[in-house]
Write a protein that binds this DNA or RNA. Structure first.
Length: 197
DNA sequence: CTACCGATATTCT
DNA sequence: GAATATCGGTAGA
C-alpha cells in the first residue's frame, strides 16, 4: 500500500487511509506517538459509526474537512480520538486504537502512571490519555500547533486485519488494522457485548 | 484467564 | 426521563 498524503485523504477510501496511518507519528506538545493500531468507520453507510444517523452536535466535526481530530467521551470515563477523512460533507473517520510512545514518556506518565512501557498507549482511551487529547482538541487540525503530524510509511512491516472491537453492529467487517507483532497492540478480546456470530 | 462496574455526554423516546 | 456507548481498571478464579 502506497502512502496516502494528507491532502488526498478526501479522495481515497477510508480503508486506504487507515492502512496509510499505521506507522505514522502524531505529536501533541511534548508527547510523540507512533500509530500501531487503528479502526476504520465509513461514514453514514456504516452502522457502527457515530455518524450513521446523520450529523448531530457531537459528530459535526466528522462531517467537516479531513485532517482534523474527532474527540469524544467514551463511557463517561475516557477520551477517544479519531482522525477525520473523506471529503467535506461526508463523515468517514479512523479511530486511534493503540500507539507506541516514542517521545515525551515522562509527560505521558503524568497521565498514565506507572505501567509497562508497551502499555502506555494500548487501547483507544489510553492512546488519547498518553497524548493528552481531550475535547479541547476536538476539531483541531493535525498539521497545526499544538499538534504535529508526521506521515511515515509502515515500510516492510506487515499489516494484520480483524473485526472491529466494541461495536454493536457490523462488527464482522475486518476494519481493524494493526502492525503485525507490535507489542503496544493487545490481543484484544472481542467485546462481550458484541453480537455473537 | 473472565466478569464486573464506574461515571457521564449524547441521543432517543 | 431512559438507554446507550469506538472502554479500562480491578477483583477473583
Amino acid at each position: 500500500m502506497n502512502e496516502v498524503p494528507l491532502d488526498e485523504w478526501a479522495s481515497c477510501s477510508v480503508i486506504d487511509v487507515a492502512r496509510s496511518l499505521l506507522g505514522s507519528t502524531l505529536r501533541h506538545d511534548q508527547v510523540t506517538v507512533r500509530i500501531t493500531e487503528v479502526e476504520a468507520y465509513e461514514g453514514e453507510s456504516d452502522p457502527a459509526s457515530h455518524a450513521f444517523r446523520g450529523p448531530t452536535p457531537r459528530t459535526q466535526v466528522m462531517f467537516g474537512p479531513p485532517g482534523r481530530l474527532y474527540v469524544y467521551r467514551s463511557h463517561g470515563l475516557h477520551w477517544c480520538a479519531n482522525i477525520v477523512c473523506g471529503p467535506d460533507g461526508r463523515s468517514s473517520a479512523v479511530l486511534l486504537r493503540a500507539g507506541e510512545v516514542l517521545g515525551g514518556e515522562t509527560e505521558a506518565r503524568t497521565r498514565r502512571g506507572t505501567v509497562p512501557y508497551e502499555q502506555l498507549g494500548r487501547g483507544p482511551g489510553n492512546v488519547a490519555s498518553a497524548l493528552g487529547l481531550t475535547d479541547a482538541l476536538n476539531g483541531a487540525e493535525l498539521s497545526r500547533a499544538p499538534l504535529a503530524w508526521h506521515p511515515t510509511p509502515a515500510g516492510d512491516r506487515s499489516i494484520s486485519t480483524g473485526p472491529r472491537v466494541g461495536v454493536s453492529g457490523a462488527a464482522d467487517r475486518p476494519w481493524r488494522l494493526w502492525l503485525t507483532g507490535e507489542p503496544s497492540v493487545s490481543a484484544y478480546r472481542r467485546s462481550a457485548r458484541a453480537r455473537p456470530g
